[in-house]
Simulated scan of single mutants.
Amino acid sequence: MQLSIRLFAGLAEVIGSQTLNFHVAEPPVTAGRLKELLSASYPEAAGQIAVSMVAVDREYAPEDTVIPESSEVALIPPVSGGEPSPEENSTQDGLYTVTEQPLRTEDILAKVLDRNHGASLVFVGTTREMTGSEHTSALYYEAYIPMALSKFEEIGREVKERWQARCAISHRIGLVGVQEASVVIAVSSPHRAVCYEASRFAIEELKRMVPIWKKDIGESSQSWKGADPASRDNWPAPPADSH
Results as ranks from 00 to 15, higher is better:
I203V: 09
S221I: 09
Q222L: 10
W213T: 02
A198I: 02
N234M: 00
D216V: 08
E219T: 11
D216M: 10
G226N: 08
E197I: 03
N234G: 12
M209L: 13
A227N: 04
Q222F: 09
I212V: 15
I217W: 12
E197H: 02
S221F: 14
P238E: 10
A198E: 13
V210G: 03
S221M: 13
R208W: 07
W235P: 04
I212G: 00
Y196L: 10
A227T: 01
K207H: 03
G226L: 05
G226I: 07
Y196I: 06
V210F: 04
P236C: 11
A198T: 08
V210W: 06
A237M: 13
K214N: 05
A227Y: 00
V194P: 06
K215R: 14
W224N: 05
S220P: 00
P238H: 01
P229Q: 13
A230C: 03
P239T: 02
A202Y: 12
A202E: 15
D228Q: 00
S199H: 01
P236N: 03
A240S: 14
W224E: 12
D216R: 14
I203E: 08
I203F: 04
R200F: 07
E197A: 11
K214E: 05
P229E: 08
E197P: 04
P211F: 01
K225D: 02
E204D: 14
Q222D: 15
L206T: 06
W235D: 14
D233E: 13
W213K: 09
Q222S: 15
N234C: 03
D228I: 00
E219W: 12
Q222V: 05
Q222M: 14
W213C: 04
W224K: 06
F201C: 05
E219R: 08
I217M: 05
S223G: 10
D228M: 01
K207E: 01
P239K: 06
G218A: 12
D228V: 00
E197W: 06
K214G: 02
A227E: 03
K215Q: 11
E205T: 07
I203C: 04
P229I: 06
R200S: 15
W213D: 09
A227V: 00
A202S: 15
G226W: 01
A237N: 11
